[in-house]
Write a protein that binds this DNA or RNA. Structure first.
Length: 270
DNA sequence: CGCACCCCCTGCCGGC
DNA sequence: TGCCGGCAGGGGGTGC
């Protein structure tokens, strides 16, 4: 579920409740996430204060007052919610963190594809192994040009490779490719410099617009206060197979590769 | 090295 | 109504 815009929205919505706040107690109800939550997880967290909240790609970085980082990935169905401490528990509430301000942070994740770990900056970087931030200065047409040379991969695969650029998932890959006028199945190395430039511009524009609309809620994505996003109402191609293209009225198509659907307009995208 | 394929896990939806 | 297959925003491993 959550790609960069959703994780950024979660970060912003949690910040007022978590920044500068102490961690009182931690309860692990189900440690079996993508990787098991470590035995010393609660011990490393208890008594710490959250200095600030950051984000890299689809990962949340919670900086602790002892220099460690609490890393959280939401997988497909993960939710982080701040609530009153006495709230009722639900199925798939795997981790509870009780805070010094009387609130509770609840991690719910039905599919358990999420990840939660604590480590030094170097250890965390090794876990995430991320490329540049798409909204940062380092993501330029020159950078993407170099990453698309001499490969047989499709442009969608390159854009979704977190080691190249961090945070683009299946929704925003389809949306930005539409905006740039490039077919998902296009072999990356055949792109012209102009097309690469359009892709970088489209990436930044789509991600910024999605953040402005607080992300996309298809089924279960919610921000830190349980609120839905609004960008799903602005999809141009994603999940719109058979519907008319907003520019040319051609039918939007869906193609599957690597088990993932790509949505595109066969006329507007080349 | 790239890539096709499978896996992890639960829930939902459509077809029969 | 119930069952079954397909599919879902994530990442990772394997064998070719």
């Amino acid at each position: 579920m959550p790609e960069l815009p959703e994780v950024e929205t979660v970060r912003r919505s949690l910040e007022p409740f978590l920044k500068g706040v102490a961690i009182r107690t931690v309860a692990i109800r189900e440690p079996r996430l993508r990787r098991p939550v470590a035995d010393n997880f609660a011990e490393l967290l208890t008594g710490r204060t959250i200095a600030k909240l950051g984000r890299r790609g689809k990962y949340l970085y919670l900086y602790l007052d002892d220099g460690n980082i609490w890393l959280i990935h939401l997988g497909m169905t993960g939710q982080l919610l701040v609530e009153e401490s006495a709230g009722e528990l639900l199925p798939h509430d795997h981790v509870l963190v009780f805070l010094g301000n009387g609130r509770r942070l609840r991690y719910n994740d039905p599919r358990r594809f999420g990840l939660m770990t604590i480590g030094t900056a170097a250890e965390i970087d090794e876990v995430t192994a991320l490329g540049v931030e798409p909204l940062g200065r380092a993501f330029t047409s020159r950078y993407l040009w170099e990453k698309t040379r001499g490969t047989r991969r499709t442009i969608k695969d390159v854009l979704m490779d977190q080691r190249v650029v961090a945070g683009i998932g299946n929704i925003y890959a389809s949306e930005l490719l539409f905006r740039a006028g490039v077919q998902p199945s296009r072999i990356a190395t055949t792109l012209t410099p102009a097309a690469v430039e359009r892709l970088v511009e489209a990436t930044k524009a789509v991600l910024r617009e999605a953040i402005r609309h607080r992300g996309s809620s298809i089924s279960d994505y919610r921000d830190g206060e349980g609120k839905r996003g609004g960008f799903q109402d602005r999809f141009r191609v994603y999940d719109r197979e058979g519907q008319p293209c907003s520019k040319c009225q051609s039918r939007i198509r869906r193609e599957i590769r690597g088990g993932r659907s790509a949505f595109f307009c066969p006329r507007c995208q080349r």
